[in-house]
């Protein structure tokens, strides 16, 4: 019965693993709901801000803000949003693949890439690839706050203002539904013109209170922060939903595995009994 005992031990250990994965699945499911709420709650603000900035880009101000000026691209900056923890399926890997493609394209054009990595996974990945990681933000937890992001964003904005990078993108997983998400790249700087027909182009300007420079500066920084924050909460919702799916798959697999092993165990037991019986019968006949 040696084989039987081994199989039984294996079944026991898989059952334990299954318990863990199914618990993780449930935790992720409840966290996902919360993350989704957070995502929805902050969406209106980011959208409105985006519209305002869109109007602004279409206006014809006397004062042209640095963030609105297109310039020749020599170096680009990326803010890459990843997760802090693993066990969430292919979420990070897909994102990094997309990012690597982008980096390759820039490399072909002889453009350098600077990265601000949000999340431990991203930091690890890009550091091991010897990419130029200029800032990194980690352990945001399940409730990311704008405050925690400001430092990393400021590094990138300062570089942009100093002319060290000429474009800034944010890369994150866009939450489409609980079942689907997709890596997406969004340009933050310079700000792109909005395709809003209601605001006629280049024919008007705002009245600014206080002065344009001060106001725009604050507004732009706020906008960038809101966009990055939105990316982070989106990515967080993706992380939870992806983890939920991955853990569900793991739990199902464990179940299948256990069934198979049970079958094997029963067969082995049957075989052992049959063998014993035939030995006894054979022994009796010999006597």
């Amino acid at each position: 019965m040696a084989a039987g005992k081994e199989i039984r031990a294996k079944i026991g250990s898989i059952k334990n693993t299954q318990k863990i994965t199914s618990a993780m699945q449930m935790v992720a499911a409840s966290k996902m709901r919360k993350a989704q709420d957070r995502m929805q709650a902050s969406k209106p603000y980011a959208q409105r801000l985006r519209t305002v900035i869109g109007h602004l880009a279409n206006a014809n101000p006397d004062y042209r803000h640095l963030y609105l000026q297109e310039r020749e691209v020599k170096r680009v900056g990326y803010i890459v949003v990843s997760t802090d923890r693993g066990l969430c399926g292919g979420l990070n890997i897909n994102l990094f693949k997309k990012m690597s493609q982008e980096m390759k394209q820039w490399k072909e054009q002889n453009v350098e890439v600077a990265i601000c990595a949000i999340g431990a996974k991203g930091t690890g990945f890009f550091k091991s690839r010897k990419a130029n990681v200029v800032a990194s933000i980690q352990s945001l937890g399940d409730k990311p706050e704008v405050r925690e992001l400001i430092g990393g964003i400021k590094v990138m904005l300062d570089q942009y203002e100093a002319g060290e990078i000429d474009r800034l993108y944010v890369v994150y997983n866009d939450f489409i539904s609980a079942m689907s998400y997709e890596p997406s790249v969004q340009q933050l700087l310079p700000l792109e013109h909005a395709d809003d027909e209601t605001a006629k182009r280049n024919s008007w300007d705002y009245i600014y209170e206080p002065d344009a420079e001060k106001l725009l500066n604050e507004l732009m920084v706020r906008f960038i922060e809101a966009q990055v924050y939105q990316a982070v909460v989106d990515n967080n919702a993706c992380e939870q939903s992806s983890r939920m799916l991955a853990m569900k798959a793991a739990t199902d697999n464990a179940g299948n595995f256990i069934n198979e092993l049970n079958l094997k165990y029963n067969k082995a037991r049957q075989a052992a009994i049959t063998q014993e019986l035939s030995e006894i019968v054979g022994g009796a006949a010999a006597v």
Partner: peptide
């Protein structure tokens, strides 16, 4: 200062 805004106001941006 205080602002009262009605329809058709000039574009304005303020803190």
């Amino acid at each position: 200062g205080s602002l009262g805004i009605m329809a058709g106001h000039e574009p304005l941006l303020t803190k």
